[in-house]
């Protein structure tokens, strides 16, 4: 029984490892290049109309950005901007903003 669990665990770890671990540094660089103009590198401008991303839930951010990219969530400006992002980019960006203290 014990053995079975650890095999499962190991399989899980391996699966997780195959998708590259998120890099906060790469995420910050990508966020600075793609998102920060509107959302800020930590917070959007005090008087800007854009929602803050810093400190948001990482899974939520990933889902939202993927939806914008895949056009399953409509927004003229976000569909255009997220369109060029890869899965790795999205993981990195979401992990970076998730790690920022708002």
């Amino acid at each position: 029984m014990k053995l079975k669990y650890s095999v499962l665990l190991l399989a899980g770890l391996l699966a997780g490892g195959s998708a590259r671990a998120a890099s906060l540094y790469a995420g910050q660089a990508k966020a600075a290049a793609v998102c920060a103009q509107c959302h800020g590198i930590r917070n959007p401008s005090a008087d800007a109309p854009f929602p803050p991303l810093g400190g948001r839930d990482v899974e939520y951010l990933k889902t939202a950005i993927r939806q914008y990219r895949d056009l399953t969530r409509k927004s003229d400006i976000m569909n255009a901007i997220a369109g060029s992002l890869t899965d790795n980019d999205i993981n990195d960006i979401a992990s970076y903003y998730g790690s920022v203290k708002p």
Binding site: A33, Q37, C38, S45, A48, P49, F50, I77, I81
Partner: peptide, 14 residues
């Protein structure tokens, strides 16, 4: 959308 790598900010929504 603003201009990347300059001070030009996005005026979308403003």
């Amino acid at each position: 959308a603003g201009s990347f790598d300059t001070l030009m900010p996005p005026f979308y929504g403003k």
